[in-house]
Amino acid sequence: MDRTFRGAIAGIIGGIIMDVWDLISYHFLQIGSFRYLDWAAMMIYGEPPENIYETIVSLITQVLWAGFLGIIFSFILIKITSRGYLIKGALYGFIASFIIFAIPVLFKVPHLDQTGPNTQISHFIGAIIYGVTTAAVLHWLDSTPGVKNKS
C-alpha cells in the first residue's frame, strides 16, 4: 500500500467520522443550518440535495473529497515529520475547513455564503475531528507491519 492509498484510506475514514458528527450536530443537536453533504451538493448541483439520490451522491462525493484531502495530508507529513501528528492533523483539518468554507463566501455561492456562527462552530469541530482521525489512521497505517511498502 503506497503513501497515496494510505492517505486516501485515512482521509475517507476521517471523512466518515466527520460526517457522523455532522449528521448528529445537524439532525439531533440542531446546531448548524447545513451539512457537509449540502456543501458538496451545492458544488455539484448548484442547490441543496432535493431527493435521496442527490443526498447519497453528495455524501459519497464529500467522503471522496475527504479522501483526497487525506492524500494531501499524508504527503505534507513527509515534509514536516509526523511528530505531534494529532495536533498537526487537527490544525490541518481546521485550516482546510477554513479555506474550503471561505471559497463560497468569496464567490458568493447561494446557501453557502452566509452561514451563522453555530454552523461554523459545528463545522470547525467536525474539521478538527476529521484531522485528528485522519492523522491517527494514517499513523496506524504507517506503523502497521505489512502495510507500509512504499513511501
Rank of each mutant, 00 (worst) to 15 (best):
T133M: 01
I121S: 12
R6L: 04
T55W: 10
A90Q: 08
Y45T: 09
F124E: 04
Y130K: 00
G32L: 11
T4W: 15
I125M: 00
A10E: 02
F75K: 10
T81S: 13
S82V: 09
V132T: 03
S122Q: 07
I78P: 06
L106T: 13
F98E: 06
I80E: 13
E47T: 10
I76R: 03
W21R: 01
T61H: 12
I72F: 11
G146F: 01
T144E: 07
V132I: 15
S97P: 07
D142E: 08
V147A: 05
I44K: 03
D113N: 11
S143Q: 14
K108G: 06
H111K: 10
V20G: 10
M43A: 13
A66M: 13
I9A: 05
F5H: 09
P49A: 08
V57F: 08
L29M: 11
F75Q: 06
F34H: 14
S82Q: 14
I125Q: 01
L59D: 09
Y130I: 00
M18C: 14
S33N: 12
I17A: 12
L77Y: 07
I12L: 13
I17F: 12
T119Q: 05
I16R: 06
E50P: 07
F107P: 06
Y36F: 13
E47Q: 12
G126C: 01
I87A: 09
Y53A: 13
V132N: 00
D22P: 02
G15P: 03
I128V: 14
G93C: 05
S122G: 07
V137W: 00
G32T: 09
P49T: 01
P117Q: 14
I95E: 06
E47L: 09
G15Y: 00
Q114W: 08
S33Y: 09
T115M: 13
I95K: 12
T134Q: 00
M42H: 06
G93A: 04
D2W: 05
G126L: 03
S58E: 01
L91Y: 04
